[in-house]
Simulated scan of single mutants.
Amino acid sequence: MSQSDLRWRLRQLPNEIEPPRDLWPGIAARLPAQAPRRPHRRWLGGLSLAASLALGLGLAWQLRVPEVARPDPQAELVQREADALTREYEAALGNFDGLPMPEPLAPALATLDSSAGEIRAALDADPQARYLLGKLRRTYARRLELTQRAAGSPHA
C-alpha cells in the first residue's frame, strides 16, 4: 500500500465515532463503592485558632504605642536653662539691631548662628546632655563678642 492510498483511506474515516453503548455504567461498576474518608480532626481546628490568636497578639504587641515617659526633672531643668540662655542672648543681640555689620563677618556670624541652632536641636533630642549647655553658652558668647566688636569698630 502506498502513502497516497493510506492517506486516502484515512480521509475516508469519520471524524467522530459514537460508542455502540453507554460506557459509564461499566466504569462505575469497577470503581470502589466510596473512597475511604479521613477521620475528622477536631483538634486541628483548635490548634489553627490558637496559632491565629497567638499571631494576632504578637502583632498587637509589636505595634503597640510606646508608653509616654514622665519628664525627667533634670531634663526639664536643662531645657529651662537653655531657654533662659536663648532669651538672654536674643535680648543682648537685639541691642545691635539695625547696626551695619561688616560684610567679611557675615560668614562667621552665620556659622555661629547655625551652630547655636544645632546645639539647641541636640538639646531637644537629648535633654539630659548637660554639657551642651556649656557649648551653647560659649557659642552665644562668641557670637555676641563678634557682634560687639563689629559694631564698635567699622573695620573689624
Results as ranks from 00 to 15, higher is better:
Asp97Leu: 15
Arg37Phe: 12
Asn15Trp: 15
Thr139Trp: 00
Arg38His: 07
Ser115Ile: 12
Gly46Arg: 13
Ile119Asn: 01
Arg9Asn: 06
Pro19Glu: 04
Gln128Val: 08
His155Phe: 13
Gln79Phe: 09
Ala35Asn: 06
Pro25Gln: 08
Glu145Cys: 01
Arg130Met: 12
Leu112Ala: 07
Leu31Ser: 07
Leu63Gly: 01
Leu49Ala: 15
Glu18Arg: 12
Ala82Gln: 06
Leu53Lys: 00
Leu53Cys: 08
Ser4Leu: 14
Ala116Tyr: 02
Ala75Trp: 00
Asp72Glu: 04
His40Met: 15
Ala33Leu: 13
Ile27Phe: 12
Asp124Val: 08
Pro154Cys: 03
Gln79Asn: 10
Ala50Pro: 00
Gly26Pro: 02
Leu85His: 00
Leu136Cys: 00
Gly152Ile: 14
Leu146Asn: 00
Ala106Phe: 06
Arg38Thr: 11
Pro25Ser: 07
Gly26Gln: 14
Arg42Glu: 10
Leu49Cys: 08
Ala125Thr: 04
His40Phe: 15
Gln148Thr: 15
Trp24Thr: 14
Ala151His: 02
Val68Met: 02
Ala129Met: 04
Leu55His: 03
Asp83Ala: 14
Pro32His: 02
Asp72Gln: 06
Arg138Trp: 02
Ala92Phe: 03
Glu145Ser: 11
Asn15His: 14
Arg7Met: 12
Trp61Lys: 03
Thr139Ser: 06
Pro100Asn: 11
Ala150Cys: 02
Pro19Ala: 10
Leu132Ala: 05
Leu47Val: 11
Arg11Lys: 10
Ser48His: 06
Leu49Trp: 04
Ala33Asp: 05
Thr147Leu: 04
Pro20Gln: 14
Arg149Asn: 13
Leu85Thr: 04
Leu53Met: 09
Gln34Ala: 15
Leu57Cys: 05
Arg7Asp: 10
Pro39Asp: 09
Ala50Glu: 01
Glu88Trp: 11
Pro107Met: 04
Arg7Pro: 00
Glu103Thr: 10
Pro100Ala: 15
Arg21Ala: 14
Tyr89Cys: 04
Arg70Asp: 07
Ala75Gln: 01
Ala54Leu: 05
Leu105Gln: 07
Asp22Lys: 07
Lys135Leu: 14
Pro66Gln: 05
Asp5Ser: 12
Ala110Thr: 11
Asp5Glu: 12
Pro104Gln: 08
Glu67Gln: 11
Asp72Arg: 08
Asn95Tyr: 08
Pro19Ser: 10
Gln79Met: 13
Ala108Leu: 13
Val65Arg: 09
Leu144Asn: 01
Met101Ala: 11
Thr111His: 11
Ser48Arg: 13
Leu144Arg: 01
Ala75Ile: 08
Pro39Thr: 14
Arg64Lys: 08
Ala29Leu: 11
Thr111Met: 13
Pro71Gly: 10
Ser2Phe: 00
Arg137Lys: 12
Leu47His: 02
